Simulated assay, not measured.
Amino acid sequence: MSSWAVIQQSLPMFGEKGFQLTLWLSFVGIIGSIIVGIIVSLLQYFKVPVLHQVVSIYVEVSRNTPLLIQLFFLYYAFPVIGIKFGAELCGIIGLIFLGGSYMAEGFTGGFNGVSKGQLESGKANRVESLAACQIHCLPTRILTERSGNGRQCVFLIKETSIFTVIAIPELTNTALDLIGMYYRSNEYLLVLVVGYAIILIPLSIILTLLEKRVRYGSFGN
């Protein structure tokens, strides 16, 4: 059988199974990471007692442990204490746990970048206290940082390839299953690379354009 015929036969499995699942897990993981990131950065920015220390520990643990270990812990260690999640839910929780800490870094940088002019604008709108002015300006900073955190979105999508270790049938797992069954590594790995390229290249282009637009809007260049 020709290589092209092998690729054609594999497309339904990659498309209906691996591609769609990768997109879905990435979407839910990224949205969850953004929400967690905003909450963590707000707690850090306003130094909320106790919670500030808790989220600081979370950030350190999340950033300094591999997603692979986090997934093993969720999927294999939790059932020992009576807590059991499905493979896909473990993947989503792991992605959010990892992504939330990285998103928080970007948002915290945005919050710290609230300018004197923005605070003065807040005061002009009768927002009197410093804290209230900062809160008034935070939505603008969140929107500004969306381009900076775009790189984290790309990173999280690529991290879904690790889900294969807990048998989630995303793109990488689909490719490995097909290779194990039919021993056509070159063809299935090519489809795998193309699949990720279809997701990541348009996203990277969009994020680059968005970053330029936000930068020009912020600095007037």
Rank of each mutant, 00 (worst) to 15 (best):
W4K: 10
W4F: 15
I7Y: 09
Q9H: 12
G15N: 11
E16G: 13
G18M: 08
G18E: 03
L25Q: 01
F27L: 14
F27M: 09
F27Y: 09
V28F: 12
I30L: 09
G32W: 11
I34V: 15
V36M: 14
I38A: 03
I38C: 04
S41Y: 02
S41I: 10
L42P: 05
L43D: 06
L43M: 14
L43F: 12
K47I: 02
K47P: 06
V48F: 10
P49I: 07
V50H: 08
S56V: 11
I57R: 00
Y58M: 07
R63W: 08
L67V: 03
Q70F: 04
Q70A: 14
L71I: 07
Y75P: 04
Y76D: 04
G82S: 03
G86H: 03
C90P: 13
C90Y: 03
G94F: 02
I96D: 00
F97H: 11
G100T: 05
G100W: 09
S101D: 11
Y102V: 05
Y102C: 00
F107N: 02
T108D: 09
N112A: 08
Q118D: 00
Q118C: 02
G122N: 03
A124N: 02
N125I: 05
V127D: 00
L130M: 13
I135H: 04
I135N: 06
L138E: 04
T140P: 00
T140A: 05
R141N: 00
G148Y: 12
G150R: 07
R151I: 13
Q152S: 00
I157R: 01
K158A: 10
K158E: 06
E159S: 15
I162H: 00
I168V: 15
L171M: 12
T174S: 08
A175E: 05
D177L: 15
I179W: 00
M181A: 14
R184N: 15
Y188W: 10
V193K: 08
V193T: 12
V194H: 05
A197L: 15
I198Q: 03
I199D: 04
I199E: 05
L200R: 01
I201T: 06
P202R: 12
L210G: 06
E211T: 09
E211Y: 08
E211R: 11
K212S: 13
R213F: 13
R213A: 15
Y216I: 13
Y216R: 14
G217P: 09
N221P: 11
